[in-house]
Design a protein around this nucleic acid. Structure first.
Length: 495
RNA sequence: GGGUCGUUAACUCAGUCGGUAGAGUAUCUGCCUUUUAAGCAGAGAGUCGCGCGUUCAAGUCGCGCACGACCCA
């Protein structure tokens, strides 16, 4: 238990004084009649000025500011829906209630009842006739003008951040709205939302380090999933032709402004579709969500204008390397010269890296960050796309795209590989090429291959990072701004 | 993993050349019945992130550690 400083002691003392006056410090016998937003809306309907002669409203919320005049006071009360001023006058509420009111603090939760009036300065306010202490706050809130800005405290004590920084609340409301719109969009197109395992016996569907756990009764290692892909495809085999899942993935890797160890991913699969269909779907869905959430498809992200109005630019990886990075076509086609170009840019390549890998490295270094407006990049090398279908005309590339907006990968999709023989070979190759430093060796998912052998209909599938999409649409610079409780190192115990 | 910057009152921040720890908000006391960053007068509030070192003397200089931010890999 931390030592109580003066402020905390004073709060506890005040709480005791209230209790001595017979006040229940944690009462649960008050029911507000109205959300603050609804009070404001009703006042708007009624129009003109309010003289305290209208209906009474019972509201409840947290006291955010107080301006005290001795025998009267103004305060701002905040609930989930908004904020309104309350005027408490001794002559109106009575001596006893006013004495109790004087012992309330900023940060306390209280109820007030009374009619509306408009103050001299023109602010719509509640003229309290009843004061009801509801919950005592034993800790002071951050300063009213600057609020809470220390990012560490904001993330560690998100509850305080949410109380005092209204734009934070707004961001998380938008996040929920985005997810709701994704669901609506896919449900309306015949997709079925499913839940697949979070704990996998084999960590598959992506290349990433998994978290490990242990099942005691079965005495076996399990991995928190790095991707749901291989399970969703099993459902295609089973006959569900349009499925999606919005859920957490876990990757045991570094933290940054773009990476949290657990993050939310949308994955969806559509039978009898190709990656071309998914490009159409994606630009329609994301531009629609932007219009709903932001109100426009012309958005600003960290001072940059981004135009989400369809249609979006589509480049093959080769086209992008030429158009954006200025690499001549004949160099692109020549493995030796391209490798030299990569090395000239300081890219270190090991001997096993093929032509496709070299291209991808150059793309990541020279092109990605320049793709500000939404851009689909297609024709990813087969070498780095173990689960994607090969292109009919050029088997060295796959029918795959990634979507970049503001220089960041937002989505990854492909026409799915459904040839079980090809899939087995590619997985075996991937396992053979594993790095020696990998702590967890990739394993062949025999059951997934068995499922494919029953026949998976041709399909296209896609993953969209919900956190990054939310960052884009809420103009948030860090993934921690769109995750309620982002992962941080443990708080030091000596603080 | 490397580099840069930061950590001082509950919050937001100052702190000069190394010489008694400062402000605003919040809190407490008094005045104040239409204020809104209310006002006026007064008061209390600090392990200067942690540890070691240099020095007569360290918030300040050096080293190490913790946590965080940004950049790089």
């Amino acid at each position: 238990m931390e030592e109580l400083n003066q402020v905390l002691l004073q709060r506890r003392q005040k709480a005791q004084e209230l209790a001595d006056l017979g006040v229940d410090l944690y009462a649960n016998d008050y029911r507000p009649s109205c959300a603050i937003r609804d009070v404001l809306a009703k006042a708007e309907e009624r129009g003109d000025s309010h003289q305290g002669d209208g209906p009474e409203y019972a509201i409840a919320g947290r006291i955010m500011t107080v301006r005290n005049f001795g025998k009267a006071a103004f305060l701002h009360l905040q609930d989930a829906s908004g904020r309104i001023q309350v005027y408490v006058k001794r002559d109106e509420v009575g001596d006893e209630a006013y004495a109790i009111f004087k012992k309330l603090d900023i940060g306390d939760i209280a109820g007030f009842k009374g009619p509306l009036f408009t103050t001299k300065t023109g602010e719509l306010s509640i003229a309290a006739t009843v004061v009801k202490p509801i919950t005592k706050s034993l800790r002071p809130l951050p300063e009213k003008f600057h609020g809470l800005t220390d990012v560490e405290t904001r993330y560690r004590q998100r509850y305080v951040d949410l109380i005092v920084n209204p734009e934070v609340k707004d961001t998380f409301k938008k996040r929920v709205e985005i997810i709701r719109l994704v669901r609506d969009y896919l449900n309306n197109r015949g997709f079925m939302e499913v839940e697949t395992p979070m704990m996998h016996p084999i960590a598959g569907g992506a290349t990433a380090k998994p978290f490990q756990t242990h099942h005691n009764a079965l005495d076996m290692t399990l991995y928190l999933r790095i991707a749901p892909e291989l399970y969703l495809k099993r459902l295609l085999v089973g006959g569900f032709e349009r499925v999606f899942e919005i859920n957490r993935n876990f990757r045991n890797e570094g933290l940054s402004t773009r990476h949290n160890p657990e993050f939310t991913m949308l994955e969806f699969y559509q039978a009898y579709a190709t990656y071309h269909d998914l490009m159409d779907l994606t630009e329609e869905m994301i531009s629609w969500i932007a219009a709903e959430v932001v109100g426009t498809t012309l958005i600003t992200y960290q001072g940059q204008e981004v135009d989400l109005t369809p249609p979006w630019r589509r480049y093959t990886m080769d086209e992008a390397l030429t158009a954006v990075a200025g690499i001549p076509i004949d160099v692109l086609a020549d493995p030796v010269r391209l490798r030299q170009t990569a090395m000239d840019h300081g890219i270190s390549l090991d001997a096993s890296a093929g032509h496709g890998k070299v291209k991808t490295e150059l793309f990541e270094l020279l092109v990605e960050e320049k793709l500000i407006d939404p851009t689909f990049i297609t024709a990813y090398p087969t070498e780095i796309s173990p689960l994607a279908r090969r292109n009919q005309d050029d088997p060295t590339v796959t029918d795959r795209f990634e979507l970049f907006i503001t220089g960041r990968e937002i989505a990854n999709a492909f026409s799915e590989l459904n040839d079980p023989i090809d899939q087995r070979q590619r997985m075996e190759k991937q396992i053979a090429n594993r790095g020696d430093d990998e702590e967890i060796f990739p394993e062949l998912d025999a059951d997934f291959l068995r499922a494919l052998e029953y026949g998976m209909p041709p399909a296209a599938g896609q993953g969209i990072g919900i956190d990054r999409l939310t960052m884009l649409l809420t103009d948030s610079p860090s993934i921690r701004d769109v995750i309620l409780f982002p992962h941080l190192r443990p708080e030091s115990t000596n603080s």
